[in-house]
């Protein structure tokens, strides 16, 4: 940790939930600026955030507020302009590309808005892919749990094109969880789904947290989706505007309204 970020850490309170002190992902003074000079866009402005282990966190905010940027940085997909990110205690800034890739492979899972299954692989192969890439054997019991949770035992040998959107996204969730990651990130996972399929996917994520102790961070526009989370972080203009613990749908809607009113 650099002296500068330590200074900032003491200067600003860290948004964290005191009841959970075991942290899966932490961000300190995290900033991201696109471009330079007068046209520079400050997508993130010195964000401090701790994501607790074994919890379901949601990130919300109006379009352009920096949600995707935050997700990219927390997941080690992009590099910060300033500040630091730690996953499982490992400082990302110190890692080269291969080490960062291995970290993503072993300790991070992803669920994308547009599923992003590999079309040439069957559902089962897609789920196993992160393990295959690592050359690892699955933990049998965990693997069975993940497969069972997808609920498409009869279609595991089908290609993605032969699955419905909801089925595809459930396969994607299984792929994200198969390595038992320190954290799974989901970017608008219900954005391309009908409400029934969306609810199933949310239940799957919720169950992974509640029953299997997984850590999930989800970016979403949808207050109803966010209502499944244990915690909702609201961004505006690249800064954390609200940090709500287990808010109900009403509280989320109210916070969204206040956020857009102030924006």
């Amino acid at each position: 940790m650099t002296p500068a970020s330590q200074l900032v850490t003491t200067a600003e309170p860290v948004t964290t939930d005191p009841s959970h002190n075991q942290v899966a992902v932490s961000a300190r003074s995290l900033s991201k600026t696109y471009g330079t000079g007068p046209t520079a866009v400050h997508a993130l402005r010195s964000v401090n955030l701790d994501i607790e282990r074994g919890r379901f966190s949601a990130i919300m905010g109006p379009s352009g507020s920096g949600k995707s940027t935050l997700l990219h940085l927390l997941a080690g997909l992009d590099t910060a302009s300033a500040g630091s990110v730690r996953i499982d205690g490992q400082e990302l800034g110190a890692l080269g590309d291969d080490a960062l890739t291995r970290l993503r492979r072993d300790r991070v899972g992803f669920v994308f808005q547009s599923f992003n299954l590999i079309p040439t692989l069957t559902a089962a192969e897609n789920i196993r892919l992160p393990l295959d890439l690592a050359g690892r054997q699955p933990d049998r019991a965990w693997f069975d749990y993940v497969i069972a949770s997808v609920g498409i035992a009869d279609r595991l040998n089908h290609r993605p094109s032969e699955l419905s959107g909801g089925q595809r996204q459930r396969v994607a969730v299984a792929r994200a969880l198969v390595t038992r990651p320190a954290v799974a990130f989901a970017d608008e996972p219900t954005g391309n789904l009908d409400s029934v399929s969306g609810a199933e996917v949310l239940r799957l994520l919720r169950d992974a947290v509640t029953h299997a102790g997984q850590t999930v961070v989800m970016v979403t526009h949808d207050p109803a989706a966010a209502a499944h989370a244990d915690r909702v972080v609201m961004l505006a203009d690249g800064m954390i505007r609200h940090d709500l613990i287990a808010p109900g749908l009403d509280a989320i809607v109210a916070a969204v309204a206040s956020g857009s009113a102030s924006a």
């Binding site: 997909l77 890739t101 291995r102 993503r104 492979r105 992003n116 079309p119 992160p130 890439l133 690592a134």
Partner: peptide, 16 residues
């Protein structure tokens, strides 16, 4: 490009 990005995101190294 996008498929490659997905593979990279879920843990494929540049070498792979």
């Amino acid at each position: 490009r996008r498929e490659f990005a997905v593979l990279r995101a879920i843990g494929m190294t540049r070498g792979q």
